[in-house]
Design a protein around this nucleic acid. Structure first.
Length: 415
RNA sequence: GGCCCGGUCGUCUAGCGGUUCAGGACGCCGCCCUCUCAAGGCGGAGGUCGCCGGUUCGAAUCCGGUCCGGGCUACCA
């Protein structure tokens, strides 16, 4: 039911993008849109689309969630060139398997003096922050108490087994951190407000910002296309690229997807995961088309855009900066369009699960497909989602007794 | 508090100083088609481009300010 683009070798090896979900839940609408943009960009550029699992949070990451995300991506038809289950030369593709590379990066940073050990406890830090927020200026970041410890003292405390994290030594004379975002344009952050952020926790694990930069460097990512919520993380990450002496990729940030109340899309808005939409009988072609248009446009006129058109014409310079409200009524309409265009055979194939709940027998569908294909012209033009099938077609499977709708009887038959 | 980003019909958007620049789509309303409901066709109502100044012969488009909304500011990602 979902056709994916054939896995052709990349014609443009320099273009490498990645979608990097953390398996802490289902693939939600916002993540799906990010994945679609990465995928479409890679296909349009003849580049490589990589899938990477960011499972550094052992508390919330599960293997089951990883499988759910993979399944959702497959259902959407977003085939990845490198990643889980397909492999690739830049693997492994989950962060828990890349610990050695983070350790190596830390070692490089230590040798260069770009990081320093910090012995402040979390409790002490929390207390300082709370105190600072009481006063006028507010909290201004880590106060750098450990930044100027003598190398001898630092070494002695480490050898004595004192718990410590590793912080980035942000250069004092660093000018503004500027970059040209592919959707937002030129953006600049003053470097003096940058915190000496933690790169490696006291348990030796890398923090998010550190792991992401290491992975993106090692996987030779050329364009980082991700959610808007990372815009403010970008200058921090650029500092890490610089400390590591690695080229900085192009960044492209995507605005947020909001619920009908203009608030960030969340569970209380109802369905927010891709698989919920699948289960409610939406066609993945329609979902992809709809999501692609939530923040991007082909020409401002065209609304029905199939996969081929999307993967040929997608471009970052036509992505909007403005947050978008997820409007389900338009999705319904769009899904109806796809149903009307899919044809009888494809319809029966896709509709089978719902025909079964309507009362049809699997064996019967297999035995006489033509009979079911004949149903298509009957319902295609009044169907917007497959989960309406039991209601609209259930009478076909009632047998000899047919119940008439009272309202319809009064309106028509009694005349 | 500090830093950063955004603001065009109810919603998704086009527009990137001047030939309908306010266009397209969903939704909504009406008409046509029609044994119902849809689908389809035609037409209509919806935006003084958040607000205030400025630049200019001319601004939704450039500049400043302001308001509102959002993000980051964690040993979360």
């Amino acid at each position: 039911m979902t056709q994916t683009t054939p896995a052709t070798p990349a014609q443009n090896p320099a273009i490498r993008v990645r979608f990097a979900p953390s398996p802490t839940g289902q693939l939600h609408i916002g993540g799906a849109r990010t994945a679609i943009y990465n995928w479409a960009f890679a296909r349009a550029q003849g580049g490589t689309f990589i899938l990477r699992i960011e499972d550094t949070d052992p508390e919330r990451s599960t293997e089951e969630n990883t499988q759910v995300i993979l399944r959702a991506l497959q259902w959407l038809g977003l085939d990845w060139d490198e990643g889980p289950s397909v492999g690739g030369s830049a693997g492994p593709y989950s962060q828990t398997q890349r610990q050695d590379s983070y350790a190596a990066a830390l070692e490089q940073l230590r040798a260069a003096g770009a990081v320093y050990p910090c012995f402040c406890t979390k409790e002490a830090l929390d207390a300082k922050r709370a105190a600072a927020e009481e006063h006028d200026g507010g909290y201004a970041g880590y106060d750098r108490t450990c930044r100027d410890l003598s190398p001898e003292e630092a070494r002695a405390r480490i050898e004595a087994g004192q718990a410590h994290v590793w912080r980035l030594r942000v250069p004092n004379d660093h000018g503004a951190i500027a970059f040209d975002d592919a959707v937002y344009g030129p953006i600049s952050f003053p470097a003096n407000v940058m915190d000496d952020m933690i790169l490696v926790r006291s348990d030796g694990s890398p923090t998010y910002n550190f792991a992401v930069v290491c992975d993106d460097i090692n996987m030779r990512i050329s364009h980082v296309i991700r959610g808007d919520d990372h815009l403010s993380n970008t200058p921090r990450q650029i500092l890490i690229y610089e400390a590591l002496g690695a080229p900085v990729p192009t960044f492209a940030h995507l605005s947020m997807i909001l619920g009908p109340d203009n608030k960030k899309l969340s569970k209380r808005h109802g369905a927010t995961s891709v698989e919920e939409y699948r289960d409610r009988g939406y066609l993945s072609d329609a979902l992809v088309n709809f999501l692609a248009l939530l923040g991007w446009s082909l020409d401002g006129e065209t609304t029905i855009i199939d996969r081929a058109t999307l993967t040929e014409n997608f471009s970052l310079d036509r992505v909007t900066k403005k947050d978008a409200v997820f409007d389900e009524t338009k999705l319904d309409w769009m899904c109806g369009v796809y149903i009307r265009e899919m044809g009888a055979a494809a319809w029966v194939r896709a509709a089978t699960p719902w025909l079964l709940t309507a009362g049809a027998q699997a064996a019967d569908i297999a035995a006489q497909p033509a009979r079911y294909e004949a149903l298509y012209p009957l319902v295609a033009e009044r169907l917007t989602r497959f989960d309406e099938i039991p209601e609209k077609l259930g009478y076909m499977f009632w047998g000899a007794t047919v119940q008439l709708d009272e309202a319809s009887v009064n309106k028509i038959l009694k005349k």
